[in-house]
Amino acid sequence: MTVFRPPLPTRRHLLAAGALSPLLRPSRLRAATTVPDSPLSAEHALVAFGHVGPVSDGGWTHAHDLGVQAVRARWPGLNTIYVESIPYSADATRIFRQFVAEGAAMVIATSNYGDFIRDVADAAPKVAFLECDGHNVSDNLGWYYITHWYASYIIGVAAGRLSKSGRLGYIASFPIPSVFAGANATLLGAQSVNPQATMRVISINSWFDPQAASQAGAALVDSGCDFLCGIMDDPAYLRVAEERHVWAAMWNTDMRRFGPDSYVSSVVLDFAPFYIDQIAARLAGRWQPAGHFLGLGHGVDRDAWGARVPQAVRDEADAVRTRILAGWNPFTGPIRDTTGRIRIPAGQSMSDAELYQWSWQVQGGAGLA
């Protein structure tokens, strides 16, 4: 049966219960040359999930938890455990090592933990590890990520039509590649229908801080932005948009209930098919470590349009979506950065690997270092 272990709801409870003894950071160990390949029955297997936030956040972690729920529905006898709000610190290493000690056949981290998870994977060659937004593949460690830049571009087309001022405001977490990709893609989509569109970005140094997100949203509206978007795990700035009568697009899940009049769409995530596929492979003894991009319509997409989005805007944006699904790449040059320098020459397109590592802001944008 599915197992919810009270001792493992949070890092704090783990430490308080004495379940995790202080462990020195292990030295880099060379993984074995064999992958986890022994077939397992669901009733005798344990899969552990490590989350960066609370499953109740309504955003990123909630989207992953929906995938976990789908796994439980697919295999009612599979044992599953999870820990919420794992910090980016040595505590992460302790928790991942605890998963291994619990007997996990597979460990799935729903955020990028770098060496904190890789060190554990290297020391446990018979356990399969997956890291969301990871960048390493070893004998028993793979990664996966969503190509959210396409959904962001589609929503950007709608933003370019809906914004009367042409000023978009973006609430960001940190100046990291996923944020650059999301902000840039949205702005480029807007500029495809309104070449004068601009974007101001405010980073709040958190994925989940409703107060800071609200303050950033209000500041952007005060500066003249009439379309808010971002990459937050909560609906705070949508509430601001509703109060201030401007448009807003969200991330992770359908959040329209928090601002039905302002809601345009959301970059929505669906990890369920991928989790089911990967766990099925592990149970069958045929899992292989690799990097996986979950594409448009297969893990990530735009949400159903908000009630007040005009039909003409929906149709125009969805025509772009159809072109992307048919193979068209909207990230084709010339694309300039904020200094006017051409970064992507005419006729050259950015690959998913390049978009995944985006580290510069496009012309018309401001606020990302």
Rank of each mutant, 00 (worst) to 15 (best):
N79V: 01
L8P: 00
Y145L: 11
I344D: 14
D209M: 06
R286Q: 14
T33H: 13
L296P: 08
D303F: 04
G160E: 07
V267C: 14
I81A: 15
T34Y: 09
F208C: 02
A123L: 06
G166T: 14
I342T: 15
V313H: 03
M1A: 13
F4Q: 07
E84A: 00
Y153S: 04
R12C: 00
A105C: 02
S178R: 10
H292P: 01
H64S: 05
A16T: 03
G365T: 07
S85I: 00
R72Y: 11
V179I: 14
A128V: 03
A304K: 07
G367L: 12
L15E: 11
C229W: 12
R97H: 01
V120Q: 01
A281P: 06
D57W: 08
Q98L: 13
L220C: 07
D222G: 04
D37V: 06
G306K: 05
A158W: 10
V137Y: 09
G156M: 07
R161P: 08
L24F: 04
L78S: 10
A16F: 01
I202E: 15
F180M: 06
D91P: 01
A366Y: 09
L40A: 09
V71D: 07
A190S: 12
Q363R: 08
P334K: 12
R257F: 01
T93V: 03
S21V: 05
A158R: 04
H51Q: 05
D337Y: 13
V100R: 02
A280C: 00
R314W: 03
A284Q: 10
D119P: 02
L40I: 04
Y145F: 10
A158Q: 08
G259R: 05
S56Y: 06
P22A: 07
N194E: 11
V309M: 09
C225S: 14
P289V: 05
S138G: 05
V83A: 02
R239G: 08
L294S: 04
D303K: 01
D318N: 12
D233S: 13
R321D: 11
A290R: 13
G53E: 13
N112Y: 13
A185F: 13
A219D: 12
T332A: 13
S265P: 12
A272H: 03
A123S: 15
R341Y: 07
G59I: 09
P125C: 04
R28C: 00
F180L: 09
Y153E: 05
A284Y: 03
I202L: 14
G327E: 11
D233R: 01
V268G: 04
S266M: 10
D65K: 02
A249L: 12
S266N: 10
S266H: 10
V246R: 13
S173R: 01
E102Q: 12
P310G: 05
V313S: 04
M350A: 15
R167I: 03
M350R: 14
P125F: 06
L15R: 01
P22M: 01
V68A: 01
P210M: 04
L29T: 06
D352L: 09
E131K: 00
P345C: 05
H135Q: 10
D254L: 10
R25V: 09
Q196D: 13
E43Q: 14
D119I: 02
S38T: 14
G306Y: 04
E242V: 00
I95N: 01
D337P: 15
G306T: 08
H292V: 07
M106Y: 04
A317C: 07
Q363I: 11
